[in-house]
Amino acid sequence: MTEDKDLNIKNDEEMGFDDPAKTIQETMDTFLSAANVEAVYGEPIEKDDTLIIPSAEVLSFAGFGLGTGYGIEAGSEEEDKSVGGGGGGGGGGRVLSRPVAVIIASPDGVRVEPIVDPTKIALAFFTTLGFMVGMIARMKRGK
């Protein structure tokens, strides 16, 4: 990548590093392949005359970072002096999935049954309730 003949700096390939941009692009392509309809709908389950298709919301994110650096020996007066370099990188990601609904197809017809998460709703309810009680208490104190 970097080439400076005056300082005899070697590029990444000469120093044995893989092309970081290429590695990131490949990882990114693999990550983006998750954005398809198969990630949302599960394998249909057929029993007797009924077909069930589960569906879920899928949230995925990934982040990458990398850096490389080179330097000459401190206090060196010789410009041709060999230099050192280094590089590093890292990344992380996460996939979150939550069931949303089930599609049920039977001879009577097709219907969509929502999947309700009572724990999440109860937590949100009590958090909002606490917030509202706090706000009302503050209002009363203000008077």
Binding site: N36, Y41, I53, E57, L59, F61
Partner: peptide, 23 residues
């Protein structure tokens, strides 16, 4: 039955990205 899903992709070139898939 034909299911439909919406996909939202946000890319930060060289830094990562975010995908939200929902039925």
């Amino acid at each position: 039955v034909t299911p439909f899903a919406q996909s939202v992709q946000i890319r930060f070139p060289g830094m990562g990205g975010f995908i939200w898939n929902r039925p």
